[in-house]
């Protein structure tokens, strides 16, 4: 029986320059942040990243890892604009494919279903369909003969997601109240790598009671690393909430090259355990209070 346990660095070693990689979560929820930081301190380059963006994109933009970003937004909810993303975007630092939030799902779904595109009205009348990737239309073969936008399949080389529990075979649980879109991300990807708050036995997953939290089947999971607080400073509710204080420190780091360099030294270019200590330690993270949405 396959033992898929890996370390963070093992996962990064599976990735290659130029790959198209999907990042799970949404804005400030269950982002694979430890993986984003591990990529930031690796030699990887020229990545095409696809995600509902949060500080994962800010970190990877600030560290020059992005060749192309496929996105609908980069935001931290309570802090609407990410200054690292803005700075890189305004400098023309990477190529862009800007999608409607629904297009994003359709592109992954088409890849997952092994069809070339999905058809939709969404995009008609907007500037989004002036982008070459979204510029193709298709005519309905039925009586309506309606002209629709063809959203191309976007297959991923790898998907990176953060979960709450996993066994060593990659049977996972995401316990947060919203499963988000990690499932279609994994289904659109050749291989999915998972970080988990806790690695447990299959029995401890209590799958009979928790099956609704089992968002993907283990056949999709190529590797799993136990990384407690691997979503920090985003939330992995119910285990911990967003760290607004740290997100402010993160934003402040965009105000000068010196502060960015200091931020990288303290929080990015360090092993994950050192990061957890640097942001206040295990007890401080567990004590974070849920902010209002």
């Amino acid at each position: 029986m396959a033992d898929k346990r890996m370390t963070l660095d093992d996962i990064v070693d599976q990735l290659e320059d130029g790959m198209t990689i999907g990042l799970g979560g949404w804005a400030t929820r269950r982002k694979p942040m430890a993986l984003a930081r591990a990529i930031a301190r690796s030699k990887l380059k020229d990545l095409t990243l696809m995600t509902y963006g949060g500080p994962d994109i800010g970190i990877l933009a600030a560290t020059g890892k992005i060749k192309k970003l496929i996105f609908s937004f980069v935001s931290m909810d309570q802090i609407p604009l990410d200054p690292h993303f803005r700075a890189a975007r305004q400098a023309g630092g990477f190529d862009i494919l800007e999608l409607d939030e629904g297009h994003y799902q359709m592109a992954l779904m088409a890849a997952a279903m092994q069809v070339p595109f999905m058809a939709t009205r969404i995009g008609l009348g907007t500037d989004l369909i002036k982008q070459p990737e979204l510029s193709k239309t298709v005519t309905s073969p039925f009586e309506d003969a309606e002209t629709l936008v063809a959203v191309p399949a976007i297959p991923l080389d790898a998907a990176l997601i953060h979960v709450h529990r996993s066994d060593e075979r990659g049977n996972v649980l995401t316990l947060s109240p919203d499963p988000l879109f990690d499932e279609i991300l994994a289904r659109a990807a050749k291989r999915t790598f998972v970080t988990t708050e806790k690695l447990v036995t299959t029995a401890e997953l209590d799958m009979r009671a928790n099956s609704r939290f089992n968002i993907i089947d283990r056949a999709l999971v190529a590797g799993v690393a136990e990384v407690p607080f691997g979503a920090h400073p985003t939330s992995a509710e119910p285990d911990y909430h967003i760290d607004m204080e740290h997100l402010k420190t993160y934003c402040d780091a965009a105000t000068s090259p010196e502060l960015l360099s200091e931020y990288r030294q303290r929080f990015v270019d360090v092993p994950h355990e050192t990061y957890v200590a640097a942001v206040g330690g295990v007890d401080a993270i567990r004590a974070l209070r849920k902010p209002a949405y």
Partner: peptide, 20 residues
């Protein structure tokens, strides 16, 4: 769009919301 004077959120769900 390629090199904006000010990058804001991104289109989010605006295209789909207004369409649907």
């Amino acid at each position: 769009h390629k090199k904006p004077k000010s990058a804001m959120l991104g289109a989010r769900g605006f295209p789909g919301n207004t369409t649907c």
